[in-house]
């Protein structure tokens, strides 16, 4: 095993000791660079009440490059596609090594509160979000109920 950088150990310790409200991130038993993440749907969003699973992986050159994050739970959102890939600038060209796992997850939670259909990853979802927002929100609520409320 490649030696685990202090940075990752430190971030992991802090995530455990001072968890972010509404977010749980637990490192895998066998791979300290792989995190099982659960994000709760934000209040007053169509995702309220849902528990969304994500996977987060810290690549070899983290923190010089961004974590890889993906939704595992299906979600109806204009910036998240059917494979769970997330369209978020700080995960791509706006990454900074001063950002952390916790700031990334907070940004993802914020993206759930504020979908951005003008810069979509899931085109069909974004299209509906623009032409008929209330129906899109109904779909998002329905998907949340169907896929993210499994106890």
């Amino acid at each position: 095993m490649a030696a685990l950088p202090r940075r990752i150990i430190k971030e992991t310790q802090r995530l455990m000791q001072e968890p972010v409200p509404g977010i749980s991130a637990v490192p895998s038993e066998t791979n300290a660079r792989y995190f099982h993440v659960i994000v709760t749907g934000p209040e007053d969003s169509p995702f309220e009440g849902g528990l969304f699973k994500l996977e987060l992986f810290l690549p070899e050159d983290y923190p010089m490059s961004a974590p890889k994050v993906r939704f595992i739970t299906k979600i109806y959102h204009p910036n998240i596609d059917r494979l769970g890939r997330i369209c978020l600038d700080i995960l791509k060209d706006k990454w900074s090594p001063a950002l952390q796992i916790r700031t990334v997850l907070l940004s993802i939670q914020a993206l759930l509160s504020a979908p951005n259909p003008d810069d979509p990853l899931a085109n069909d979802v974004a299209e509906l979000w623009k032409v008929n927002e209330s129906e899109a929100i109904r779909n998002a609520k329905e998907w949340t109920r169907r896929y993210a409320m499994d106890n």
Binding site: L88, D89, I90, A110, D119, N123
Partner: peptide, 13 residues
């Protein structure tokens, strides 16, 4: 906060 940046429609046959 981040915003969306890439556009690629899912290719579903």
């Amino acid at each position: 906060m981040g915003s969306c940046c890439s556009k690629e429609p899912p290719n579903t046959g």
